[in-house]
């Protein structure tokens, strides 16, 4: 957390001069579930990037690759996994109730407490 400043040291009128400084605020601590990226399965369709409410899908724009998650900010909502067409395909193919942390999925949602590197 930033140190609290006095009235002489902040811009007037409540103006915030540092655009996008919310990146300094870690919302990743809210997470109960963590998205885990299965690079091998990914087709780099960027659907997860399109739908992430937290701008937390990391992409390599030059090579047009999805590269992972911004875990500093990802709140673990699971939308990326739900919109992933690879996941949809896997779930359909499995023809069974698939656990959300099934290793066959492109984006798996793993309980934070149970996550291991």
């Amino acid at each position: 957390m930033a140190e609290l400043k006095g009235w002489r040291d902040i811009p007037i009128g409540g103006m915030i001069l540092e655009a996008g400084n919310a990146t300094e605020y870690p919302t990743g601590t809210w997470r109960a579930f963590r998205p885990v990226f299965g690079e091998a399965e990914c087709i780099h369709c960027f659907q997860c990037w399109l739908f992430c409410p937290d701008s937390s899908i990391l992409v390599d724009p030059e090579n047009e690759k999805m590269v992972g998650f911004d875990l500093e900010h990802c709140k673990g909502c699971g939308i990326c996994a739900s919109v992933c067409p690879v996941n949809a395909k896997v779930i359909k193919k499995a023809d069974e109730e698939l656990a959300q942390d099934d290793p066959r999925l492109c984006i798996r949602m793993v309980e934070e407490g149970k996550f291991q590197e």
Partner: peptide, 25 residues
């Protein structure tokens, strides 16, 4: 999406909308 992702997001992460909020999407 791949073309659009080349420009930085105009809304940064670190906002405090609820997880899964439709508004920021």
């Amino acid at each position: 999406p791949k073309e659009l992702a080349k420009r930085p997001d105009r809304l940064s992460p670190g906002h405090r909308l609820c997880a899964g909020c439709g508004a920021s999407i």
